[in-house]
Design a protein around this nucleic acid. Structure first.
Lengths: 167, 167
DNA sequence: TTAAACTTTCAATAATTACTGAAAGTTTAA
DNA sequence: TTAAACTTTCAGTAATTATTGAAAGTTTAA
C-alpha cells in the first residue's frame, strides 16, 4: 500500500465510521484529511481533495470548529484562511467526549431522571416504567461521569476510585 | 407527569437518541417500548402503540433480535408470536457494546493498523499519516479493549489493571 | 391437505438528510 | 472608498434512508 492508497483508505474508512455513528460523511472526511495533513489546508485544498463543493466545505468546517477539533489559521500576508486539526489524540478524544456528553447524553439523562421519578400508582406497568428507566438512568449517569473523568485525565479521581474498588 | 406522558416521553427521547447515534428511530422506539413493558408484546401491539406498519415492525424486530437485545416468545396454545426485551441493564450494555465493537470498531481498527504500517518514504506527509493513524489506532484499540473488559465484568482484570496504575 | 392465522419480503414511495452553486456578505490592500 | 479576494448562506436539488402495504411465504390445527 503506497501513500495515496493509504490516505484514501483512511479518509473513506473514517467517513464510513462517521456515518455509522451519526456524523455526516463530509464532516468526518474533512476531519480525516486535516488529521493527517502536515500543514493547514485552505478551503480550495479541501474541496479539491475530497471533491466537494465550496458550500459543503464551509458548512462542515464550521461544525468541526464548533466541536472544537478544527481551528482556523491565517498565514501572515495572505488573505486566504487555512484550517488545521487538533493533532493530539488525547485532546481529540477529550473534546469529542465532552461535546457528545453535553449535546446528547446529558439531555437524555435529564429525561430519564424525570421519567423515573413519576409517582407510582400501584399498577404493574407504572412500576415497570419506573424500574426500567431508573436502571437506565443510573447506567447512563455513571457511564457519563466515568467517561468524562477518564477523558479529562483526572488521575487523582481514577486512583481514588480504584482504591475504593480494591478494598 | 402521568404514566402515559412519561411513557411517550421516554419512547420519543430514546428514538431521538438512537437517530443521533446512527440507529433508526423505529428500532430504538420498539426497543424502548419493550424495555418498559411488563409483558411481551405482539406485533399488533407494537404497530398500534407506535403507529408503524407491519413491515417496518417486522424488519426492526429482526434487527433487534440480531443485536441480541430482543427475544421471541411463544405463548402456549397461541399461534401469535410475542416479543420481549432483555431486561437487565448490564446485559443490555454488554450486548450493545459487544455488537458495536464487532461490527463497527474492530473493522476500523484493522484498517488503522494497516494504514499506520505502510513503509515510510522519507516524505513529511507519509510520516504524518503514519504518526497520526498510529495514534488513532492505539487509542481505538485501547478503548475497545477496555470497554469490552469493563462491560464483560471482568473484575479480576479491572483490579489487576488498577493495581498497576496505583503502583 | 387445506385453509386460517400469522410473518416476512420487497418494490414503490415518502421522509429525511446532504450537497450544490450562485448570490450575498465580509475583509483588506491600495 | 472601492474592488478584488475570499467566505458564508440558503433555496433548490440530489442522494440516502426509512416506511408502507400488499403479495408471497410459513406454520399449525383440524
Amino acid at each position: 500500500m503506497n501513500y495515496t492508497e493509504a490516505k484514501d483508505k483512511f479518509i473513506s474508512t473514517w467517513g464510513a465510521l462517521g456515518t455509522l455513528w451519526g456524523i455526516n460523511k463530509a464532516m468526518a472526511q474533512i476531519h480525516a484529511l486535516l488529521w493527517i495533513s502536515p500543514q493547514p489546508l485552505s478551503m480550495e485544498d479541501i474541496m479539491e481533495e475530497l471533491h466537494i463543493s465550496r458550500g459543503n466545505t464551509s458548512m462542515n468546517l464550521r461544525q468541526l470548529m464548533d466541536w472544537g477539533i478544527v481551528f482556523k489559521e491565517s498565514k501572515p500576508g495572505e488573505r486566504k484562511e487555512y484550517f488545521a486539526s487538533e493533532k493530539d489524540v488525547q485532546e481529540l478524544a477529550r473534546q469529542v467526549a465532552k461535546e457528545r456528553s453535553r449535546r446528547e447524553i446529558k439531555p437524555v439523562i435529564k429525561v430519564l431522571r424525570e421519567v423515573s421519578r413519576i409517582k407510582g400508582d400501584g399498577t404493574k406497568k407504572t412500576e415497570e416504567l419506573i424500574k426500567q428507566t431508573k436502571a437506565l438512568y443510573e447506567l447512563a449517569d455513571n457511564a457519563d461521569t466515568m467517561m468524562n473523568k477518564i477523558v479529562n485525565q483526572e488521575s487523582k479521581w481514577l486512583t481514588k476510585t480504584l482504591m475504593k474498588l480494591i478494598k
